[in-house]
């Protein structure tokens, strides 16, 4: 290396980006308006690093940006064909692992998984569909849980614990049989203290947790990703507010 690395700067692709001690690469990138594709990360919630979409190359090594601390002088590659190709394959894996029938799903247009597929140029699911059997939980009066669309990102688990101060969800089971469970004796949502205003009820990036009686509030064509690209920074606020027809 010719020059010593600047203190508290990292380089992502061709940009020098400042960071504060304790920040992750993802934190620093988002603060500098640099998009690193991600599905299981949400600002303000402890990162976990399970979807692997945010993988970047740090000095040649693949690391998840959402969990890796930024360190002065890191040379990071992000928006490059190899990584975007891998992200596309990971997205395909998430699609075939569950059942994602986008045209008939209430989340269509508001779904981060669907938007990610568009962003990465994913034209087909490629892999064989796995058709898992996962239970629907319609017991709660105002919230619906359809596990077949869950991508196991654990955002609802973490949001409930860290933001809502509850502990409504967990992930159970091993390997391909992992699935979302509810922390009640009956295992049903109706017996939990989950409310529609909780972050856990609104944070789901896909159509696995839906607020009842709000189907198609925003018509197709006016949904979040009809009007925004997933690569825009700071969409979370709109996301949480729910898809109101005039959110833009």
């Amino acid at each position: 290396m010719m020059t010593a690395p600047e203190p508290n700067l990292i380089r992502i692709d061709d940009r020098e980006i400042p960071f504060v001690h304790g920040e992750t690469i993802m934190d620093a990138a988002l603060a500098a308006d640099v998009y690193i594709p991600h599905l299981c990360h949400f600002p303000g919630i402890t990162p976990q690093g399970n979807c692997k979409l945010c993988t970047v190359e740090v000095d040649g090594k693949p690391l998840t940006a959402c969990t890796s601390p930024a360190a002065a002088g890191q040379q990071i590659r992000n928006n490059i064909p190899e990584l975007n190709e891998a992200r596309k394959v990971l997205t395909q894996m998430l699609f075939i692992e569950g059942n994602h029938i986008c045209p008939s799903c209430e989340k269509t247009g508001n779904c981060a998984l669907q938007a990610m597929a568009y962003h990465l140029g994913m034209l087909h699911q490629h892999f064989p569909q796995q058709f898992p059997e996962r239970e629907v939980d319609a017991s709660h009066p105002t919230i619906m849980l359809d596990r077949i669309r869950c991508i196991l990102c654990s955002l609802c688990v973490r949001a409930s614990q860290e933001v809502d101060g509850k502990n409504v969800f967990a992930i159970a089971g091993r390997g391909i049989h992992a699935s979302l469970i509810v922390n009640t004796a009956s295992g049903k949502l109706v017996d939990s203290d989950l409310e529609p205003s909780d972050l856990a009820a609104r944070i789901c990036p896909v159509g696995a947790i839906l607020i009842k009686e709000h189907g198609y509030d925003a018509p197709i064509g006016k949904r979040i990703f009809d009007q925004h690209k997933i690569s825009e920074i700071g969409l979370e606020k709109i996301y949480i507010a729910g898809a109101k027809s005039d959110d833009s």
């Binding site: 894996m93 992930i171 390997g175 992992a178």
Partner: peptide, 18 residues
């Protein structure tokens, strides 16, 4: 490996089965 994958991360959870 498909049987023993813990299921936490996408590439191993889905990839070992594929």
């Amino acid at each position: 490996f498909a049987h023993e994958s813990c299921g936490f991360c996408t590439p191993c959870r889905v990839g070992t089965t594929l």
